[in-house]
């Protein structure tokens, strides 16, 4: 690949990279304690869970899908794990059951999309409320579930460090490497790009698109389950209300801001990292500056909007995008 700065700056990725670097430099100069090891670790850690969910979303988006139901799957499967643990089921069994539930939900959603040919955005939007409603009705009554006080598993994940780096960051880094290798080194990974670029052509070339879709949504649900476990370990509890929060938009913000177009076929793990870095740096800096809630939302909105506008100016609509359309 031939990288030149000028070329780089003409992509959305380049614009966001420049924005990120700019904010980083500004904060580093004006906030004395911003560039300390402690704060940087806290910054990365605060983005690890959103980043992990964004990895799942990125894979789905690359295949020209979208998974709005990840949060529902996450909160329901992990709340169930905690309820089971409270009822005395051994830890290993609860994790297995929770994982199976997440995988089953993902596979069903994937099947509806692949075999029912329902557009992913509608299928996952509807599936989200079905999963959440079913969970609230049958698996747990209260939205808030505490980690059982004697659970050394969650305490270990939430509190320990490996070479001074919190386990949560290590898990996120591990998944980044895994997904990166999957997308760049495996046939299945390449198939995702093919599906995203042109589903019909991908099918005609002999890719088993339907089973692949089922597998993809299963993987996305399983990653969501892991992210939920990290939340439980991190805050000692999980609140099913996250399903009703703006978390899903934050995930889409990271994916889109990082430069993974919603029309599919493009994007790498580094785009997720870039999006997460910009959002994380902004949030961390604004917390240090003690900026109020409304202004923080305003800044987030303005940054996203400017990234889109600059991208639109640098990369005007062409024949292909106008035919294919954005999501």
């Amino acid at each position: 690949m031939n990288w030149s700065l000028g070329k780089m700056l003409k992509t959305q990725e380049g614009v966001v990279l420049a924005l990120t670097a700019g904010t980083l430099v500004l904060f580093a100069i004006f906030l004395p304690s911003f560039l300390t090891a402690g704060n940087l670790i806290s910054l990365v850690r605060s983005m690890s869970i959103l980043g992990l969910l964004s990895l799942a979303m990125a894979m789905v988006v690359i295949s020209r899908g979208v998974d709005i139901s990840v949060i529902a799957t996450m909160v329901v499967s992990v709340s169930w794990v905690l309820v089971l643990q409270r009822n005395g089921v051994p830890l290993g069994a609860t994790l297995l059951l929770g994982g199976l539930l997440a995988a089953l939900v993902g596979a069903l959603i994937g099947a509806v999309i692949a075999y029912g040919e329902i557009p992913p955005i509608f299928a996952t939007l509807a599936a989200g409320s079905v999963v959440y409603g079913a969970g609230r009705t049958w698996l747990f009554k209260l939205e808030m579930q505490n980690v059982p006080p004697d659970s050394s598993f969650f305490t270990a994940i939430g509190n320990s460090q490996i070479f001074g780096i919190p386990v949560i960051i290590v898990v996120f880094a591990g998944f980044c490497i895994l997904v990166h290798l999957f997308l760049t080194r495996t046939r299945l990974g390449w198939a995702l790009y093919a599906m995203g670029n042109n589903p019909a052509a991908a099918r005609n070339s002999g890719f088993a698109i339907r089973p692949l879709t089922v597998g993809l949504y299963t993987a996305s649900s399983l990653i969501a389950f892991v992210a939920g476990l990290l939340i439980a370990a991190s805050t000692n509890s999980i609140n099913a209300r996250l399903y009703n929060s703006t978390m899903i938009y934050d995930i889409l913000l990271i994916v889109v801001l990082g430069g993974i177009g919603l029309n599919g076929g493009h994007g790498r793990v580094r785009n997720v990292l870039l999006g997460a870095a910009l959002v994380g740096i902004l949030l961390n800096g604004m917390t240090i500056l003690n900026v109020n809630f409304t202004t923080q939302n305003l800044v987030k909105g303005v940054v996203l909007l400017s990234a889109i506008v600059i991208d639109a100016i640098l990369n005007p609509r062409d024949e292909q995008t106008s035919q294919q359309g954005d999501l």
Binding site: S46, I49, I231, T235, S237, T287
Partner: peptide
């Protein structure tokens, strides 16, 4: 926003 994970990361940053 009543989000425990957000509360955690804010307190983490404040303690830094």
């Amino acid at each position: 926003e009543y989000n425990a994970e957000k509360a955690r990361s804010i307190m983490d940053t404040v303690l830094q």
